[in-house]
Design a protein around this nucleic acid. Structure first.
Lengths: 234, 234
DNA sequence: CGCGTATTTGATAAGGCTCAAACGGTGTGG
DNA sequence: CCACACCGTTTGAGCCTTATCAAATACGCG
């Protein structure tokens, strides 16, 4: 982790898709006074599972994974985060320790907002408070969906769903590849399967003309068929 | 569903373990004026998946399940609710339709609180707002745990965990049996497995002296060993 | 260029699912 | 009060999916 040149929150580009967008200009200035900005290199742990964070990070750019160490020493990726997401808010608001480590998937620039400040805003700014709550409730809905999927769908269906989710969350780069780089093991940890199984399925998808791969990059070729496989509902 | 004799919120016994406990006496009286009380018989749908509720139910007594219909027509139980729980709050606050049906596991008495009232309280009572948020964030933590479990643990481990969870949530009746009655299919839908598999495992547990069963009732005999099997962490 | 790590492929086995059938308890109607 | 029917439960057998172990290959980095 190294420090970075701070950007004024008021002019921050992530505004539009960030709960902090509901704060007043004065409140944003308050953040400017207190915040710390830093860069985490790819692979670095931003917040470790089990710790109690003293605030949250707002992602300025880059991508992160929320990865949870299960009892058998295997990781599971329960969520991904990107530009504008608040990291660690669940833990801070529930007043619980972090249930997952937050790790940089690529070099990621974040701003630290102390817990006290965040709670102040919640106390004083109803609009912000509501949108925080809405965020939590939406994430809760997402989790419920994931639970059903893990419980009922097979690996093939889940992989198709993960690919479509990545597309929805990160979009495509100029070559039409998914704009996020993950190792096979990370894919496996998202789908909830063994790395070898994941590799076989990716290669099946390739043979069936659903995707193309180029080293670490993946391109969705037939999103319709993928959606069929994923059996998407709601 | 039939209507029931209303109890004044101020004197309601569920107070202590209910987010509504953070409301002022005046606010509770407001609820008294607007609320509707009703009884749902065992098996009745209190709120159907996909609908957009116009408020939340507060559980006065009884037990409910949150059950989600997957794409292959199979149900999965993602949570249980009991005395003092608010039903449908996630959907109301996220402004999304219900991601699961809420169904009475036994005769259940509930009070309906309109959405507008709930939002008023959130706007005006910071303490209440915070505890709602805390609730959401705690539930979100629970969900994350469930996701990891489903992804990494086998059926035997998950069953042990479900049994311990039921014990923690509902406790024991006078005969030391779990104070909740579920069909084998419902157990299977909580664990995320086929009914036949669940039955075999329950019978294994019985043979190993971990549990006793009596028709629909289940008694935990060796909670230590069950916890070992479940590989409980955090 | 060489080493270490990530990826891929293969073989095998186990865990869990599905289908089928038997069994049991409960409630209803005669 | 009994007989029947229905639904939930239990048991068995076979198969399919997926995990595991082992080995080969490719890739990236110093």
């Amino acid at each position: 982790m190294s420090s970075a040149i701070p950007v004024h929150c008021k002019e921050c580009s992530v505004h539009n898709n960030c709960v902090l967008g509901h704060l007043t200009p004065e409140e944003l200035e308050q953040i400017d006074r207190d915040k710390g900005c830093s860069i985490f290199k790819k692979g670095q742990i931003i917040m470790p599972q089990g710790s109690k964070p003293s605030g949250v990070y707002c992602v300025f750019n880059g991508k992160v994974k929320f990865t949870r160490l299960g009892s058998e020493g295997r990781d599971h990726i329960i969520r991904l985060g990107t530009k504008g997401d608040l990291l660690g808010y669940r833990s801070v608001l529930a007043n619980e320790s972090l249930s997952a480590s937050i790790v940089a998937l690529e070099d990621t620039q974040v701003c630290f907002i102390p817990k006290s400040l965040l709670l102040n805003f919640i106390n004083e700014n109803v609009g912000f408070s509501l949108s925080m709550m809405q965020q939590a409730c939406q994430d809760l809905g997402e989790s419920g969906k994931m639970i059903t999927n893990l419980a009922q769908k097979n690996v093939r269906q889940r992989l198709a769903e993960v690919l479509l989710m990545l597309n929805a969350k990160f979009g495509k780069d100029q070559d039409d590849f998914l704009d996020v780089k993950l190792s096979r093991e990370e894919y496996a940890n998202m789908v909830g399967t063994a790395t070898e199984t994941l590799i076989r399925l990716l290669s099946d998808f390739k043979i069936e003309g659903l995707i193309e791969t180029n080293v670490k990059r993946v391109k969705l070729v037939d999103e319709i068929k993928l959606a069929n496989i994923a059996q998407l509902e709601n």
